[in-house]
Design a protein around this nucleic acid. Structure first.
Length: 115
DNA sequence: CTGATGACGGTGC
DNA sequence: GGCACCGCCATCA
């Protein structure tokens, strides 16, 4: 492993970051984009995450900055996401949003190698 | 290379 | 708190 040419792709970085999100915590697309090395690419993160469905990634822990769940056309996606998060300890308010101040992931707490 | 799209983010009303 | 517009970046045709 080590190297060389894999994690150099934005898509691969998003995969790695999404996998390092601790259980019971949630990260925003912007957060993942920033950690991936491209701040502001929140939209691009959505593209990657959308394609990641089925890749064995905890995509459910990745939500928007509003603490809300997106779904993009599908109806089972946001519903399933909320169930998975609740199963991990995340509580959603009546508005359908979660408290990012409590469940918001602060980051890997360590320097990423691609930084 | 250009254009269009998209699971976003922020600001303004 | 909700809705609307613009801007951001990456991927696909």
């Amino acid at each position: 492993m080590t190297s060389d040419k894999e994690e150099t792709s934005f898509k691969l970085r998003v995969y790695a970051i999404t996998r390092m999100i601790p259980r019971g915590k949630v990260a925003t697309y912007g957060q993942v984009a920033t950690l991936a090395g491209s701040a502001g690419a929140a939209r691009a993160c959505g593209h990657v995450l959308r394609h990641s469905a089925g890749e064995g990634l905890p995509w459910q822990r990745v939500i928007n900055a509003q603490g809300r769940i997106s779904g993009g056309g599908d109806v089972h996606r946001p519903l399933l996401q909320r169930q998975l998060l609740e199963a991990e300890g995340v509580v959603f308010r009546r508005s359908g949003s979660c408290d990012m101040k409590v469940y918001g992931w602060e980051g890997p707490c360590q320097r990423l190698k691609w930084e």
